[in-house]
Nucleic acid binder design. Structure first.
Lengths: 405, 405
DNA sequence: GTAAATATTTTACCGACTGAAATAAATATG
DNA sequence: CATATTTATTTCAGTCGGTAAAATATTTAC
């Protein structure tokens, strides 16, 4: 008879070690217990306990192959641990204007299936929004003969202002109503945990878990698409701002009373760097007709059109200025420039890098690295999946202790 | 006979509750145990234990006066707790070009004595630097018939790049050598713990502990003096950047290839807002002669000089642009504009506020509050003292457990 | 085969925290 | 005025996460 007498320790600080161990294993790929202990500044005994729990939850497994010991070769060999990817399936969704992109991944982030679900309307009621997500998920799951109920978690990225901790959408370009709490809507309609977040934050999560930010504590992810987005990771955590509306890098002003932006204000970075800004500039050059994408501008520039080159160059200069401001303010370990489809070579040229270097306050330390990441068009959905994996990990670890004997 | 067998818990997470309780008491001024428990989401039993320790360490005391209970008046009355300010004396120093400002404060931050120690040279060797600090401290302490040995801690603010955790100064305008570890130098020369940090960070600490940021979790402190500084507090902690050289707000660029800045780059905010920038502008207007301070420009503007007004107005516009960028990126609870002596009304005018409002991306939520704080000329030294109090608090709490029976 | 080296697990114990019960100190009520 | 009621704080016994040290496991060196 277990007497449930005293005291679960405060939820905030509970299980932090197990989650840290899990994240460390994910970041390293495969790693021995003794290395985890030294990396996390904890004792081997703690790592033994934590990994035992993670293994029993099916989140982690021991690998066959063995790593060589640090010094020499004598002594008991280290046993490598890695994620047990097969146990859980997670879906990531990105809701865009005309399409919902869905990706199914295993627990290591490997793609299992993907799908595009066409939307007939850009903006939907919350109910319609959730139904569309349900349908998109079902179609994707059927590809691999699974049902939605098999999913360990679903993560949804939308453009807009989201309080991710509460699944609360203040405003989104995909939804007709403001201030919607999706917690109940989603749990009613889906048989598994679901999470909503802002899309740029999700890409930052993807870079942190699987991408170029793996294992870093302080970095920025700049997303390039129609507009310019930003995700901020500080101390290993996504920084969301006090009201969840920070990181509006695209709307920081780079020119007093400058070019007109989609948002209605003047001088926004996006008004110089966004695709619509470039296309707008090109209309002035006389190619009024049918310029439809940034890669067309690149083509023209490459074939000797000086005006096209000049349009791209100015965008690059402004972008470089914006990036140097980010470095001056945040002093990050690294900045990751992530793009899905749009061509953005003009934002990574050596001229832009020079502009950045010349705009950063001079110190002994070298400039933070600027890494460019060309994702495919599933960038946003993969970002959502990354967040889903993280959230499911946390859920599973919590279950672990609440169910324990 | 005590057998020192197992296990101090990892230093990082040790005593966090006691420190949180102490900080909460400091933020509230006086508060009852039951309120602390609910504010910190912990149990009353924990608060009893924590406060008992803090009282025995002489950091906290019970007050005579009693607060009324929340609802009704029946029941055992709450006992208010407050800091016991008299037990410890802390010194804050700011090293400037020609002077070291020293302030002695009690543990509640009340000024006990202050002093200015003239420097004969703006840049010193590390040894000379430490000796000057020692002398400045001795002169100040003698005012109240104490010796330096009575101090519980000393905190030193310098302009430059500092790794505060290690008392390591990468570079400072006050010191002739780079990359100096002051830990040993200070502990050899001073009979009490000493801490070094960047001056703008210290002002942020002062606002957090005693000023307009009391109790806030996410806020920015913009300091106005010769240049423009920034301190960033996120999640209640000072954010210092990866290499300790972030928060260079004054050198974020507000104009592509704009005005020349002291730092050698072009278009820095400081090159439009710093005092030297305003004085430079005024030289062009024909008043070449003896314009020496910003308040003279204010005087001229107030007496109808349109050129002076225009110079101040442009600085305000650029400042507003910079502030709106900060809000767009950080989405803080509040921005505190702190100045010591320089006149900066032109940076808080209604035109500037309008510029800020129009530069922030529009959301439902109201604009973060912008608070203006006119300190006296001891702003920087008081900032240092605030940091000193915090550090000494942490030390005392740690002693508490290591000395415990 | 035995010693030395290294990784992991087991053991015994510490300390922070908790819920529940006990205690303290006030007011309300008759 | 005694007693019930209410609220704040403390005490108590127990849980949980963590640790150091010892024990155990598994390898190579000799």
């Amino acid at each position: 008879m277990l007497k449930s007498k005293a005291s679960p320790v405060s939820l905030e600080q509970r299980n932090t070690t197990r989650i840290r161990v899990l994240e460390h294993i994910r970041a390293k790929g495969s790693v021995s217990r003794i290395d985890i202990a030294s990396a996390l500044q904890t004792s081997p005994a703690t790592v033994t306990a934590a990994t035992a729990d993670l293994i029993s939850a099916g989140l982690v497994k021991e690998t066959e192959s063995q790593a060589q010991s640090k010094s020499g070769k004598r002594g008991r060999p280290r046993v490598l641990l890695q994620l047990d990817g097969q146990m859980h399936l997670v879906a990531g969704l990105k809701v865009a204007r005309q399409v919902i992109s869905v990706i199914l991944v295993d627990f290591e982030g490997n793609e299992v299936a993907s799908h595009k679900y066409a939307l007939d309307q850009a903006r939907m009621s919350p109910q319609k929004f959730v139904s569309a997500i349900r349908e998109a998920l079902e179609e994707t799951c059927s590809q691999i003969d699974r049902s939605v109920a098999h999913l360990a978690g679903v993560s949804i990225g939308v453009a807009g202002l989201v309080d991710a901790n509460r699944n609360f959408v203040h405003w989104s370009s995909s939804i007709t109503e403001r201030n919607i709490d999706f917690s109940h809507l989603l749990s009613n309609k889906l048989p598994c945990p679901a999470f909503v977040d802002n899309d740029a934050n999700l890409v930052a999560k993807a870079e942190q878990l699987f991408g170029l930010g793996k294992g870093l504590e302080n970095f920025l992810v700049v997303t390039i698409e129609h507009g310019v987005g930003l995700g901020i990771v500080l101390d290993g955590k996504l920084y969301r701002g006090e009201r969840g509306c920070g990181a509006e890098f695209g709307h920081t002003k780079v020119q007093l009373d400058g070019a007109l932006c989609q948002c209605g204000q003047r001088g926004c970075l996006e008004a110089y760097v966004g695709d619509y800004a470039l296309l707008r500039e090109m209309t002035v050059t006389g190619h009024t007709n049918d310029m439809e994408s940034v890669s067309e501008i690149h083509d023209r520039a490459n074939s000797g059109d000086d005006r096209a080159s000049s349009v791209l160059a100015r965008a690059g200069q402004m972008f470089g200025l914006g990036i140097s401001n980010l470095i001056n303010l945040f002093d990050p370990e690294c900045i990751i420039v992530s793009g899905a489809q749009m061509s953005f070579e003009h934002l990574c040229s050596s001229e832009v890098m020079t502009r950045i270097r010349n705009g950063v306050v001079n110190v002994d330390a070298p400039l933070p690295q600027i890494k460019v990441h060309h994702w495919g068009d599933m960038m946003w959905a993969k970002g959502a999946a990354a967040y889903g994996i993280e959230q499911v990990s946390i859920l599973k670890v919590k279950e672990l202790t609440s169910n324990a004997p």
